[in-house]
Design a protein around this nucleic acid. Structure first.
Lengths: 218, 218
DNA sequence: GGCTGTGAACGGCTTCACAGCG
DNA sequence: CGCTGTGAAGCCGTTCACAGCC
């Protein structure tokens, strides 16, 4: 079975975590790894790991395990980070800068294609080594550079407008940190509000609330 | 049916989003809201909203809808943010500072109880109006102030150690941004690696990858 | 008539059990 | 014998359909 119409989103969300462990194993000199070992590292069941990978093909060798290097390369291809796609970042505030640092420090397979900010002061300068363009240039710049990925780290009031410009420029997938639910029929949006995450966390911090188990999805 | 043993995590994750819309409705002067209207605002189905709320009791009036104020208060109680619990933040870098700003700007129902950083320079100063304590003080400070919630925004190498100190201090729930999978049998952990999120996003930014639909879980 | 609350049906993800190779 | 790959079963959350109230 190769690449059915639709892969479970839960599977896609786990692939980067497998990749993270594979890269560590590779740096440690490991050539081969079994789903059992990956299971211990990631805390996902070994069957689940095998099933996730099987959606995309047969990468392992029976009786042996998976080649660390080959599997990592396969996951990068699947995720589309093998060719280092460019990311557009809108909002060069604290959170945006934090993201730029993350990407600069670790090699995630993503490059920063463009950084935007509506603040003229920031628009003139540089942030984390990237030139900052004015928000008014979003649509054109994104289109010209054929950027498909974007992250929005602007205040709530600006998010909708910025999103429209990104969509106009042809962006295909957006990670939105602003506390506004963005939606579009043909663009993938992942809304990730940090305040909301903390509020959900609070539930599990209550005496009676949490069972002590880890959250199953993350 | 009132408060069964275990509430679906997906339900808990949606409650803050309902709350966000309820607060906006309240500021707009709305007294009553139907699950239909909440559905349009949040993009979750009205049945799902009703079912989520029904886990905790019957808050609505048939034929009328839900009282905006009462429902908001109920959700705050359920999440445990009615009494404004304190949060411990470890790591006063870019991301940590961004989080502090988020919490300062919006009233999320959480207060910042303590901020820690291993950098002596930061430990002496203030960040976003909060005094920064040395990482060595984590366990004792958390225990003394009875802090149950924590966020970790430190580099990967420090995360495990910091986590151990928080657990020692008696923390009950942790939001971990470091690219390390933290786990503990009696403490709830939500691992949220931003680089990982971006890598998963890349999948949906591919030509063939995404169907254009929004991610169902967020 | 409108809207909530909820058992039943449905669907999708996970777990189980095992067949298939090395 | 070890480990992968996979149909089948189980489970959990969402959707459906409707009863119950206002």
């Amino acid at each position: 079975m190769r690449e059915p119409r639709r892969i479970p989103p839960a599977t896609i969300a786990r692939l980067p975590l497998y990749l993270r462990e594979l890269e560590e194993l590779g740096e440690a000199g490991q050539d081969v790894v079994s789903s059992r070992v990956l299971s211990e590292l990631t805390q996902f069941s070994s069957e689940q790991i095998r099933k996730d990978l099987a959606y995309f093909g047969a990468f392992g060798r029976r009786g042996i395990g998976y080649s660390v290097g080959h599997l990592a390369a396969a996951i990068r291809r699947i995720l589309g980070i093998a060719e280092e796609p460019e990311l557009a970042l809108v909002g060069a505030g604290r959170l945006g800068t934090a993201l730029l640092r993350y990407l600069g420090r670790r090699h995630a397979g993503l490059s920063v294609g463009a950084v935007f900010d509506s603040d003229p002061g920031k628009s003139m300068g540089q942030v984390e080594g990237h030139r900052v363009l004015p928000a008014s240039a979003i649509a054109e710049e994104v289109r010209q550079r054929k950027i498909r990925l974007a992250a929005i780290t602007v205040p709530a009031t600006a998010a909708q407008e910025v999103f429209a410009a990104l969509v106009e420029g042809g962006v295909q997938a957006v990670l939105n940190f602003a506390p506004v639910k963005l939606k579009h029929p043909s663009v993938f949006v992942h809304n990730l509000d940090l305040a909301t995450e903390l509020q959900a966390l609070a539930y599990y911090g209550q005496a009676k609330g949490g069972t002590g188990r880890e959250r199953p999805d993350a």
